[in-house]
Amino acid sequence: MGSDNVEHETGERGPGPDVSFGPLKRALREHRYPVTAAELIEQYGAAELETPTATERFGGLLEDCEETQFRDPSDVRGAVLDALGYADASPERPSDDWTSLPR
């Protein structure tokens, strides 16, 4: 289950960002959508994400887009990766699909 927490690609497209969302990933997938960034910050703002070089607070990453409304967990993931400076150039969903829970 370790791959549930680390956001990197294992397919043929090459490595993606190495960001660990930890337990926040499951919480975001189980959350009811649509939701605003402000609501997510209120509920999960203190959660920490691990990158290869730092630990980042979830709330701090989303504070510039508090008015944004997210339709699904992959939108939240994209906003977090944007805030970390990772460009998500691929229009395809990542191999670790954020829209559904593992069975």
Rank of each mutant, 00 (worst) to 15 (best):
P91F: 10
S20W: 05
T36L: 11
S74L: 13
H8Q: 01
T55F: 05
T68H: 08
L40I: 09
S20C: 14
V6H: 02
G60T: 00
E9V: 15
L62S: 01
K25V: 08
S3C: 14
S3R: 14
T10C: 01
P102M: 03
E56Q: 13
L81G: 03
A87L: 00
N5I: 08
E63A: 02
R93Y: 00
T10S: 12
T99I: 09
S90T: 07
W98E: 04
F58K: 04
I41Q: 06
V80Q: 05
R26P: 09
V19N: 03
V19W: 01
T51C: 15
D97M: 04
E48K: 07
G14F: 12
D82L: 00
V76H: 01
T53W: 15
G16D: 12
G2W: 06
S20R: 02
L61F: 05
A46E: 10
T51H: 10
A38N: 05
T36Y: 11
P94V: 00
P94R: 02
F70P: 06
E48R: 11
D18S: 08
S100R: 15
L28V: 09
R103P: 05
D82T: 13
T99S: 10
P23L: 00
P102F: 09
T68R: 02
V76C: 05
D75Y: 13
S74N: 04
R13A: 09
P23A: 12
S95E: 05
S100Q: 15
R32V: 13
E66K: 13
E42R: 15
I41C: 03
L40R: 11
V35W: 15
H8I: 12
D96A: 14
R57Y: 11
S100D: 13
P102N: 06
D96N: 14
H31A: 04
T68I: 01
W98L: 08
T68K: 03
L62W: 00
G45I: 03
E56P: 03
G22Q: 14
R71M: 14
F21N: 00
G14E: 09
E50C: 08
G60S: 01
E67S: 06
S3F: 15
A37G: 11
A87F: 02
G60W: 11
T55I: 06
E92K: 10
S20E: 07
V80A: 04
L61S: 05
L101H: 04
T53R: 15
S20I: 01
V6P: 02
A87W: 06
E63G: 12
F70D: 03
M1S: 15
P52C: 10
D18Y: 13
D64M: 02
P94H: 02
V6S: 01
E48F: 09
F21W: 07
A47W: 09
V80C: 06
T99A: 07
T99M: 12
Q43Y: 02
R26H: 12
L62P: 11
T53E: 15
P102H: 08
Y33F: 03
N5W: 14
E50P: 05
D97A: 04
S3E: 14
E63D: 12
E56H: 13
I41D: 05
E30D: 12
G22N: 06
D75E: 11
